[in-house]
């Protein structure tokens, strides 16, 4: 039996918006510690991982682990029916075929229950082991979104170069080149920790979909290391995060 109550639907909406661009469906793993979801996108180039601790919820109860196969598009539709400041309760039985979403308006004057059919997803649970990264950058999430958007006008691929001096974003295309440099400072609120300089290229298309999570957090954390996938982390207050992993481009014509 799972029961989880959030005081505001807005958070759930933001989370679903951040996920549904990159994956169509996913398995939400619920345990007493909270909710987790990870899935690779269709093309198996990037991986998204959501983690929400039980503290995040007003009320959280999960007496055994359950996995819920969610069709995110449908979930998004249900959430559209709710106001952002409604409280939401997610309920599921032990061997669920559907979940119930109950929305309550502020004064409990209006309650709405939606049942959503679940998918039965036969999927491997994947994870990327946490290792130390040699570069760690924090910057305003809106700035990151803007850089990704601007760069994608120039080329499909975007190069990130990190050194102790700062971080550079490069794109080279038919139009010409784009080159954005950020250095650590308080005005822009950028912090950079570099042990070893790293230069890697990524598919801009995926970075752009990652920035759909921008409303979730003011600041975004980027982790880079040689021979490791890029990690883009959007913290969800103090309770969890959405992490995106993206493999760097190799000079393989396949990708």
């Amino acid at each position: 039996m799972l029961e989880a109550r959030l005081s505001q639907t807005l958070l759930l909406k933001k989370i679903v918006d951040a996920l549904k661009e990159i994956i169509a469906q996913g398995t939400l793993d619920c345990s007493e510690n909270g909710l987790e979801l990870q899935s690779m996108d269709n093309s198996h180039v990037s991986l998204v991982a959501l983690s929400l601790a039980s503290d995040c919820f007003e009320k959280f109860h999960c007496d055994r682990n359950v996995s819920l196969g969610l069709d995110l598009k449908s979930l998004g539709k249900v959430l559209k029916c709710a106001n952002s400041d409604d409280a939401v309760t997610i309920k599921a039985v032990d061997r669920p075929e559907k979940i119930t979403l109950s929305f309550e308006s502020d004064g409990k004057e209006r309650t709405a229950d939606y049942e959503l059919k679940l998918l039965n997803l036969d999927q491997d649970h994947m994870e990327i082991p946490k290792k130390d990264y040699t570069c760690f950058i924090q910057l305003p999430s809106s700035e990151f979104a803007r850089i990704c958007r601007d760069m994608s006008m120039f080329d499909e691929s975007l190069t990130i170069a990190c050194s102790s001096k700062g971080i550079r974003f490069l794109a080279k295309g038919d139009l010409g080149t784009a080159n954005i440099q950020l250095s650590a400072g308080t005005a822009m609120d950028v912090s950079i920790e570099v042990q070893e300089p790293v230069t890697q290229s990524f598919a801009g298309r995926y970075l752009n979909t990652f920035t759909k999570a921008t409303p979730l957090a003011d600041r975004v954390k980027l982790y880079l290391s040689d021979e490791r996938p890029l990690l883009v982390e959007y913290p969800i207050e103090d309770y969890g995060h959405i992490r995106y992993y993206l493999a760097p481009k190799v000079n393989d014509p396949d990708f």
């Binding site: 469906q25 899935s39 690779m40 093309s43 198996h44 180039v45 990037s46 991986l47 196969g69 059919k117 679940l118 998918l119 039965n120 997803l121 036969d122 999927q123 491997d124 994947m126 994870e127 990327i128 082991p129 490791r228 996938p229 992993y245 993206l246 493999a247 760097p248 481009k249 190799v250 396949d254 990708f255």
Partner: peptide
Amino acid sequence: RTRTVVTSKVGGLAGFMT
């Protein structure tokens, strides 16, 4: 409503995942 998602052995992240 029942789907199987296979995990590819190729692709950018395949080498990093467990």
